[in-house]
Amino acid sequence: MKLITVKRETKEEKRYTPKMGELFTKVTYIKKRFLSIPFKTLHKYRETYYGEVKDCQACRLAR
């Protein structure tokens, strides 16, 4: 049994960008877990309508 694991989760979130406005997008989180309890988010990214992968720092949560 491993004590520390890394797991990837995808969930749909509401985001806001100045150019496109408000949109629902799938955001993927890569989290580090200790005994199946998440304790640190290593990275999060989203996929655009055009298939391009972007970091979530480029957009913020909905107003």
Rank of each mutant, 00 (worst) to 15 (best):
M1G: 13
K2I: 01
K2W: 01
L3A: 05
L3V: 03
I4W: 00
I4Y: 01
T5C: 08
T5V: 04
T5W: 00
V6K: 05
R8P: 08
R8W: 00
R8D: 12
E9I: 09
T10E: 09
T10G: 12
E12F: 00
E12S: 13
E12A: 09
E12G: 08
E12N: 11
E13Y: 12
E13N: 04
E13F: 11
K14L: 11
K14A: 13
R15M: 08
R15E: 04
R15L: 13
Y16R: 15
Y16C: 14
Y16I: 01
T17N: 14
T17S: 15
T17M: 12
P18V: 07
P18Q: 04
K19L: 13
M20E: 14
M20S: 15
G21E: 02
E22L: 07
E22F: 02
E22K: 02
E22R: 00
L23G: 00
L23N: 01
L23C: 01
L23M: 01
F24G: 03
F24D: 04
T25W: 02
T25F: 03
K26C: 00
K26I: 00
K26S: 05
T28S: 12
I30D: 02
K31C: 13
K31M: 07
K32C: 10
K32P: 05
R33I: 03
F34P: 13
L35M: 12
S36D: 15
S36G: 06
S36E: 10
S36F: 00
I37W: 01
I37M: 11
I37F: 04
P38D: 03
P38N: 02
P38H: 03
F39D: 04
F39T: 01
F39Y: 15
K40M: 09
K40Y: 13
K40W: 12
K40G: 07
T41K: 01
T41S: 01
L42Q: 05
L42A: 06
H43Q: 03
H43W: 03
K44Y: 11
Y45C: 02
R46P: 12
E47K: 15
E47A: 07
E47Y: 15
T48P: 08
Y50N: 15
Y50V: 07
Y50I: 01
Y50E: 15
G51R: 05
G51W: 00
G51P: 08
V53H: 03
V53A: 03
V53S: 06
K54I: 14
K54M: 10
D55V: 04
D55C: 06
C56I: 11
Q57G: 05
Q57K: 14
Q57V: 04
A58C: 07
A58M: 11
C59P: 06
C59M: 10
C59Y: 04
C59D: 10
C59I: 11
R60F: 13
R60I: 07
L61T: 14
L61D: 12
A62D: 12
A62G: 07
R63Y: 12
R63P: 15
